[in-house]
Design a protein around this nucleic acid. Structure first.
Lengths: 183, 183
DNA sequence: TACTTATGAGACACACATGTCTCATTCCGA
DNA sequence: TCGGAATGAGACATGTGTGTCTCATAAGTA
């Protein structure tokens, strides 16, 4: 009888990732509950979005933790990170767009933590001599988010193959489009 | 007395690029005209957005034309293209987001033309041996859009330096983050 | 079984953006 | 100077999403 909050959040994430303008009613129906019940668990749309934000941050931080960003080469760590981001990509792009829309300025501290972790990875790669130093860690971090979001959206629309998610992002981010060697 | 439609569109583009949820009233005020007048020139919000879409496409196609994508090396052509995209970046990211939001499916044929042109550039680069062939032209094209949008948004928020717009995008897109050579 | 609790369905008011209309005013051209 | 045209301001109706409330019902518990 009691609503599974986690399951509701995941359903909402899946729906809103596809259609950011979905109604509270649609969210409720998608989760198989009534609109009133949805309101009992999340005071309003803002509260729902903020809960999704917490979920997104938590999943990203989990991905960061699993990726062990400070072990081994920075390149391998980045590959692990992108792999961990794949399941969250849709939610991530939704939240990024949502943040752009409502410029409250008050970006969650969770994002700041995440940015710091990922920036640190790129910085580590620079210090190890793996990554070039003329592109700032901040830009590389944002570029990673951008590519993840773009790829998620493209894959959803079928413009690119979803199975190549990790490959496309890591290869482009690490090596770029230029052909560097051979024949 | 007569309203300068072009100027209204540019003002709207500037405003909506920053705040995609801006009201018709806000758009009118920003353009220095009354809401009624705005409605006289653009039947509704949809019409306004579609007009902005036309403007964005036109400017992008102009940038494509100026960049002479089929002249010289593909790499240089891409640099010219990114340079031409810089002034349109804000509008471009707004339109991309707008398209994501309302999945009418009916994407303007103008975008298809643009995609085709840019994809052709990447394909030409592959055929010339400049670009790697394991990343599809379609993905490279979308990645370009994504990076342009991400960079525009970051620059607006001051997270990266706006003056490095072209450099950050072209260097990342062409060479990637990996350090390939020297000491 | 009886009681408590959570839920679903629906009604309701509210806020807000939108679109339309009117009317006085201003601008431009004849 | 005069008259037509465009504009600005505001009023008005509308649609829609939202938030709150009530009440009957189902689920879980003692």
């Amino acid at each position: 009888m009691t609503v599974d909050r986690e399951q509701v959040l995941r359903t909402a994430a899946a729906l809103l990732s596809r259609r950011a303008t979905a109604t509270m009613d649609e969210v409720a129906r998608a989760a198989g509950i009534g609109r009133a019940t949805l309101h009992r668990h999340f005071a309003g749309r803002d509260a729902l979005v903020r809960a999704l934000e917490q979920l997104g941050i938590a999943e990203c931080e989990a991905a960061v933790a699993v990726a062990r960003l400070d072990e081994g080469s920075a390149e391998d760590a980045l590959r692990r990170l992108v792999a961990g981001f794949e399941p969250v990509a849709g939610l991530l792009s939704f939240l990024v767009t949502e943040n752009q829309l409502f410029e409250d300025g008050e970006l969650n501290e969770g994002w700041a933590r995440l940015d710091a972790r990922i920036s640190a990875l790129f910085r580590r790669g620079q210090e190890r001599g793996e990554f070039r130093i003329d592109l700032t860690p901040a830009w590389l971090t944002e570029a990673l988010y951008g590519l993840v979001g773009t790829c998620a959206w493209c894959a959803q629309d079928g413009r690119v193959a979803a199975k190549d998610f990790q490959y496309m992002i890591t290869e482009l981010l690490l090596g770029g489009a230029r052909r560097s060697v051979e024949p």
